[in-house]
Amino acid sequence: MLKIGNDSFQSRLLLGTGKYPNFDVQKEAVEASETEILTFTVRRMNIFEPSQPNFLEKLDLEKYTFLPNTAGAKTAEEAVRHAKLAKASGLCDMVKVEVIGCDKTLLPDPVETLKATEELVKEGFIVLPYTSDDVVLARRLEELGAHAIMPGASPIGSGQGIINPLNLSFIIEQSNVPVIVDAGIGSPADAAYAMELGADAVLLNTAVSAVEDPVRMAKAMKLAIEAGRLGFEAGRIPKKRYATASSPAEGMSIG
C-alpha cells in the first residue's frame, strides 16, 4: 500500500496525461495501467471554444486522485500560483512541485524547488517535489515537510532510464516519506529496476504516451512495477563473483 499524506493507494504507478495520440487511446491506457493517481497541468482555457474537449472532464472524478504539477513555473512564486490555481478547482489538494531551472535538460531548480515546497507545505498542500537525484537536497525537502520525494531517474522525456541507481538507493534508504521515481523511465525494465531499488512508486508519462501502442505499454508498466515491488519485498540474492551450482553435486555417478 502506497501512503501519501492521509491517502492510501493500491497502485504504485502514477501516470502522466500528456502527449497521447487521442483521448480514446488515453482513456484505455489509463484503465490498463490501473493507476489511481493522474497528473495534470494548469493552462489558459480557450474561452471562445466552450465545447473544446478536455481529458479530465471525460474521467470519473471519484475514481482518481489528481496530482496537478506546476510545470511551466521557473520560480517558487510561479509554482505557488500554479498550485493555488489548481486547488481552486476543488478537485485536489496534492501538488507536484516542478520548477525547471534549465530549458535544455529540464532539470529542476533546487533553490526554487525548496522555497516552493516550504511555502506550499505551510499553505496546507500535500507536496510532492520533483527533484534531481541529489541525496542531500532530498533530505532537505523532507525536512521542510514534503509528503513524498520525487527524484528523476534521468532527464524528463529522455527515456534514458535509471542513470544513477546509487544515488536513488541512498535517497530511498534515508527517506521516511515515499520516494517516487519520476521522469526518464523508458521501458518496463527501468520501472521494475526503480521498484527493485526500493522506490515506493514510479511516475511516468512519455514512456507510455509516446509509444506505438500506449495501451499495451500501460499494462506492461503496471506489471513491471508490481514485479519490481514483489522482487524488492522478496529480497534478491547477493551478487557473487563466481558460479554456484543450482543442482546438487551428490549422486552424480549413477553407475
Partner: peptide, 10 residues
Amino acid sequence: IEIVQFVGGG
C-alpha cells in the same frame, strides 16, 4: 481575469 483549466501533463 485569467480563466485556466487542467490539461495533459506529466
